[in-house]
Design a protein around this nucleic acid. Sequence first.
DNA 1: CGAGTTTGACCTGCGC
DNA 2: GCGCAGGTCAAACTCG
Length: 237
Amino acid sequence: MMSTTNIVNHHSLFDEEQQDHEISMQMGFNIPFPPNMTLPPLGNCHDQSLKGISAIISPEAATFAETLLATAVQKPREFEDLASSFGSSGGQNLDLNRSRMNSWAWGDVSDCWMGKRNNGGDNHNHIGVSAAIKMKKMKGRRKVREPRFCFKTMSDIDVLDDGYKWRKYGQKVVKNTQHPRSYYRCTQDSCRVKKRVERLAEDPRMVITTYEGRHAHSPSNELEESQTQSELANFFW
DNA sequence: CGAGTTTGACCTGCGC
DNA sequence: GCGCAGGTCAAACTCG
């Protein structure tokens, strides 16, 4: 099955200024691109407050994209190293960095999807990776929220295997969509990671998976770190 | 019988 | 303050 996957990196709202360091660590999210890939220009988004990148890379299974995400969330340093290695081998990196000058809030996931405007009709044979940031002025009290990462995947299956065990705790029909949104929590006791799964209203073939938080443990089908690293490398080539 | 799912009720934030 | 919409809870249910 060919898949289309988009990655969106959201970020959190934190109460305390002293958490800035952690914020910047979490914002330091590099998405590696192979050197032979042409990236479309920034800013081709309907919302001027969004800056998006979307790119076609290779025909791979969407489930591996979720493994990639799990690594990005759980081992950001390792993921950064991987991104750097792409850079040193002539690849391209997308850096999402937080400006200390701004107050932040992150828009709803649905605001950020670039893919629906791109790849017009030819999204059957590729994985696309995109990143989008929405910034808006905070108002009132700042709210604590975990870092969020999102995938858009073309799949018949709603819940893709990302190596972690999830327990469904809710389902909700979202306004103006025919498809319900499902809410999952990691089954690990000490882990507070959540994910939302929904289908894109414009294209029900697309599954949107939003992760919130970081796993405090390894996936249930534990991959060796070195194996993960090499698989990540293979994913892009 | 335990783990996971379903689903209606409830909670919370936000805009008006 | 009110209503709406999204998110969560928890009891009932299903399944292996």
